[in-house]
Amino acid sequence: MTRGGSNRLLTVQEVADWLRVSEVTVRNKYRTWGIKPQKVGRLLRFRERDILTYLDQHHG
């Protein structure tokens, strides 16, 4: 993986597992956290690089 992450799209479940929170927490908090979702139809997906940026800014 290159510095800054990839453009790989992660599901809500993958993000929740990574952050060790529930899917409900991800769905309710992504706006508060400032993470922009990518819509695939009606489904939410998140860029890996956006999650890494959030973690660097808030927990790095």
Rank of each mutant, 00 (worst) to 15 (best):
T2H: 12
R3N: 14
R3K: 14
G4P: 07
G5T: 03
S6E: 15
N7Q: 08
R8N: 09
R8M: 08
R8T: 11
L9E: 02
L9G: 12
L10G: 02
L10N: 09
L10M: 09
T11H: 11
T11V: 06
Q13L: 14
Q13E: 15
A16T: 01
D17M: 01
D17L: 05
D17I: 07
D17K: 05
W18R: 12
W18F: 14
W18T: 07
L19V: 03
L19N: 02
R20Y: 06
R20M: 11
V21C: 03
V21P: 06
S22Q: 06
E23I: 04
E23W: 00
E23A: 09
E23C: 12
V24F: 12
V24L: 04
T25L: 14
T25C: 10
T25Q: 11
V26A: 10
V26C: 00
R27E: 08
N28Y: 00
N28Q: 14
N28C: 00
K29Q: 12
K29M: 01
K29P: 02
Y30A: 04
Y30G: 03
Y30P: 11
R31S: 07
R31G: 09
W33F: 00
I35W: 09
K36S: 09
K36N: 04
K36P: 10
P37D: 05
P37T: 06
Q38N: 08
K39W: 07
V40D: 14
V40P: 14
V40F: 06
G41D: 13
G41Y: 07
G41H: 02
R42D: 15
R42V: 07
L43H: 15
L43V: 10
L43Y: 12
R45F: 12
R45S: 03
R45P: 10
F46H: 05
F46T: 01
R47N: 06
E48Y: 08
E48V: 08
R49G: 11
R49Q: 15
D50T: 02
D50P: 04
I51H: 05
I51W: 00
I51V: 13
L52T: 09
L52C: 09
Y54H: 13
Y54C: 08
Y54E: 03
L55S: 07
D56M: 13
D56Y: 12
Q57K: 13
Q57N: 09
H58Y: 07
H58G: 12
H58K: 01
H58N: 15
H59P: 03
H59N: 15
